[in-house]
């Protein structure tokens, strides 16, 4: 995904870094500013203009990572900054949608909390469904085409996708840990067997296994 977006944005990446001389962090700040501007536009009733600004903010957001990758400027600080700014962008755009009456404040808050949960576990699980700001465009299309509360539905999808991703993420991390623990136990058992040490006696069967066996 990153390599694909880098290829699409290649000319912009070169222009922004080599001609304008902007670092990835500076580009992240520009993305944040444009994202906040998008939120103000949406809150002020200029929905289409706000969504265009939001798309621009996301495109700029793709450039900072591209610059970092291409010019070897990847850093933990940059990644953290990028993540924090992304969350701020999502927070303000959800707030703006609620302020403008497109979604309820409750749904905006719940969707944002679910995104925060995935943000917390993603560095460990490496699992992120990516259902965040992007869903807002689907909400807009649903509103325009079907004349329904599309943004509200979009935030429901964001909430569920991220909540499930959090649950799956925590289970994945735990499963990997258990697999490592078991692998060590199996290796220890094998080496003890090779050394001629008698294996430990099996635990007595539990009541349930006695009942069901």
């Amino acid at each position: 995904m990153n390599k694909n977006s880098d290829r699409i944005l290649s000319a912009f990446i070169t222009f922004v870094h080599e001609r304008l001389g902007l670092s990835p962090d500076q580009v992240s700040v520009v993305s944040l500013v444009v994202g906040v501007l998008a939120a103000f536009l949406v809150a002020g009733g200029h929905l289409e203009a706000g969504l265009i600004a939001l798309a621009l903010s996301q495109a700029i957001d793709g450039i900072d990572g591209g610059i970092a990758r291409r010019y070897g400027l990847i850093s933990d600080r940059g990644k953290t900054l990028d993540t924090v700014f992304d969350r701020v962008n999502e927070f303000v755009i959800f707030l703006a949608l609620a302020f403008a009456g497109f979604v309820s404040y409750r749904m905006a808050a719940l969707a944002f909390v679910a995104i925060l949960l995935v943000t917390a576990v993603e560095p460990l699980s490496k699992f992120d469904p990516g259902f965040k700001r992007f869903m807002i465009y689907f909400g807009y299309l649903a509103t325009v085409i079907f004349h329904i509360r599309g943004f509200e539905i979009a935030l429901h999808v964001v909430f569920w996708a991220n909540l499930i991703a959090f649950v799956v993420g925590t289970i994945l991390v735990d499963y990997r840990l258990q697999r490592r623990i078991d692998a060590q136990a199996i290796m220890r058992r094998e080496s003890e067997r090779a050394s001629g040490i008698a294996p430990l006696p099996e635990d007595p069967p539990s009541l349930l296994s006695r009942v069901f066996s």
Partner: peptide, 13 residues
């Protein structure tokens, strides 16, 4: 199929 009484069955669920 051996029984291990204190196996860690639990997940974060």
């Amino acid at each position: 199929r051996k029984n291990e009484k204190h196996y860690h069955w639990r997940t974060p669920l």
